[in-house]
């Protein structure tokens, strides 16, 4: 096994270039470590390279330079220790919610009846016990995200990569989902790399919030420890005085980048 001290995810000066050498450098050499059991949120202006960074941690993208270490070993190929909740809809539309959740176990060799039984339990955990035989198009955006969460968590990955998992949801549902995530995470403390564009959400959920600069050649320009006590409630924590101080400090840094990104696309 891996030594307990090695970080779950260690991005070591990775840079990512789209379109081969001489192409578009989305991410300039960037380092980021996520300790085991740590919840890290990445915040940054749109198009800066947050998804790109997660894809590198998942092994879906090969960095042009630098190395990705997973649990102390260099990553080659896909990251089998990670579960990845994608930004886009990625459920298989031809499978029911139940089959979508069960598939991760099935392909790993679990007999189908057992896989289905466990999948039903997971659907119940995300509050969708009654929706097992619905197809993705018969579910709301938030329900689809919850099925996706169950689909990823049922495989019990050591590392959880989440790309704006609550992106298309309304503010109230985001709070409920945030609490659900905190509850599930508290149960076995996976390492989490969580991308969001909502700074308040990042502070409410994470142990650390890192800020990315606007692209091209984006990199991490801020790393803020969030020392709010746990267990937290995603809603109530926002009323905390420390929350406001943290928010104020991080926002003053983030605002500049968001403006730069906006001017970059507007120009």
């Amino acid at each position: 096994m891996h030594p307990p001290s090695s970080p779950a995810v260690a991005l070591d000066r990775i840079s990512i270039v789209y379109g081969g050498p001489g192409g578009y450098e989305a991410v300039a050499p960037t380092s980021l470590a996520v300790a085991q059991g740590e919840f890290v949120a990445i915040v940054g202006p749109t198009g800066c390279g947050k998804s790109t960074l997660l894809n590198a941690a998942a092994g879906l993208l090969k960095p042009a330079s630098g190395e990705v270490g997973i649990l102390g070993r260099p990553l080659a190929g896909l990251n089998g220790d990670a579960g990845y909740l994608f930004q886009q809809d990625s459920l298989m539309p031809w499978k029911t919610a139940l089959d979508n959740v069960a598939i991760g176990l099935e392909v790993a060799g679990t007999p189908r009846p057992d896989a289905l039984a466990r999948a039903a339990q997971w659907l119940a955990k995300v509050g969708l016990a009654a929706f097992g035989n619905r197809y993705p198009h018969q579910l709301s955006g938030g329900q689809r995200k919850r099925v996706g969460l169950a689909q990823v968590l049922i495989r019990n990955p050591k590392i959880l990569l989440m790309d704006e998992p609550f992106g298309p949801l309304d503010a109230q549902t985001r709070l409920i989902m945030g609490n659900l995530l905190l509850e599930l995470w508290a149960a076995d403390r996976k390492a989490v790399l969580f991308v969001t564009h909502d700074l308040e959400e990042a502070i409410a959920l994470a142990d650390r919030v890192v800020i990315m600069s606007s692209g091209p050649a984006a990199t991490i320009i801020g790393d803020h420890a969030i020392d709010l006590p746990r267990p937290r409630d995603a809603m109530e924590v926002r009323l905390d005085k420390c929350f406001h101080e943290l928010h104020h400090g991080i926002w003053s840094q983030l605002r500049g980048e968001v403006l730069k990104a906006y001017q970059g696309t507007a120009a």
């Binding site: 998942a58 879906l60 896909l78 990251n79 089998g80 990670a82 579960g83 990845y84 994608f86 886009q88 809809d89 990625s90 459920l91 298989m92 539309p93 031809w94 499978k95 598939i103 991760g104 392909v107 790993a108 689909q151 990823v152 495989r155």
Partner: peptide, 24 residues
């Protein structure tokens, strides 16, 4: 996205064929 998700869920080529390419 569906394809990348299926890969991340641990599917090999044969399973991708059966659960993703074939139904599509």
């Amino acid at each position: 996205a569906v394809l990348a998700n299926a890969r991340m869920l641990g599917m090999n080529e044969r399973q991708l064929f059966r659960h993703v390419y074939w139904p599509s």
